[in-house]
Structure formats: C-alpha cells, structure tokens
C-alpha cells in the first residue's frame, strides 16, 4: 500500500514511489506509461476536488494477475458529485480548453471502473492492461 496526502507535490512523490515499486516497476514500457497517466489523473483529481476544502490521506493498492493490473484508491474527501465518476466527454480540440481532459484519459485507458462511497471513504477500483516486461 502506498500512502500520500491529497495535494500535488505529495501526489507526485506517491506516484513516483508507485512507479518504482512492484508491480509497476516490472511492467512493459507501454503498460507502465498507461498506468502512470491513469494514476496521475485520478490522484490529482482527488487532490483538486475531493480535498478541495482541505488535505487528507490517499491510499493506493496495486496488484497484478494474468496480464491485468488491479488498482484500488481510497480517500476521505468529498464524495463524487452525483455519486458516480464523471463520464469524461473530451473537450473539442479546436476550443483550446485548458482542462477537462482528466476523466476522458482515465476512461479511455482504464476498464472495470467501480466507485463506492461508504463511511466517509471514497473507493475507486479499476483495471489496466499490464504485461510484464521481457528480459
């Protein structure tokens, strides 16, 4: 389990620790890159939105089995608005939006996304493709 605090520099540090630990450290480059994008977007969303009123803990669990990475992320911040993760419709490129890409990236890359809120804890689970690197 990797713990961090819901603010950008702690998220950067927690993500760095995750990328350099099993199972992520052993993944093929392409899958490792996908995992870094998805985890960064989810963790930074928690820092920005769930903890918009103040910092709190984020806990990350990662497991690997049969070509999939299983991820579970918990925080104790505000619940997802409407009780479910955003649909993530991407901004049109020509509009030159400076935000709104995060959930589009997450939904483009992650599968089996499940969110629940219980006893003040947000729990987000999902899987990612994850082949282990050869050699």
């Amino acid at each position: 389990m990797i713990e961090m605090t819901g603010e950008p520099s702690s998220v950067r540090d927690g993500l760095r620790r995750a990328m350099h630990s099993p199972p992520l450290v052993a993944l093929a480059q392409e899958d490792r890159s996908t995992a870094e994008i998805v985890l960064a977007e989810i963790l930074n969303n928690i820092a920005e939105h769930a903890y918009s009123a103040g910092e709190g803990p984020i806990r990350l669990w990662l497991g690997w089995a049969e070509g999939r990475l299983s991820c579970r992320i918990e925080d104790e911040g505000l619940p997802m608005p409407g009780g479910s993760p955003p649909v993530g419709r991407p901004p049109r490129p020509e509009d030159l939006a400076e935000g709104g890409f995060g959930w589009h990236l997450i939904r483009s890359l992650a599968a089996d996304l499940a969110y629940e809120r219980a006893r003040g804890v947000n729990r987000l689970c999902f899987t990612l493709p994850a082949e282990q690197s050869v050699g």
Binding site: I37, A40, E41, N44, E98, G99, F101, G102, L105
Partner: peptide, 11 residues
C-alpha cells in the same frame, strides 16, 4: 511525463 494539468498549461 505530462498529465492533463501539464497539457492545459501547454495549451
């Protein structure tokens, strides 16, 4: 590595 915040900054 660049995330959506980094992308937004480039835009």
């Amino acid at each position: 590595f660049l995330d959506s915040s980094g992308l937004g900054a480039v835009v």
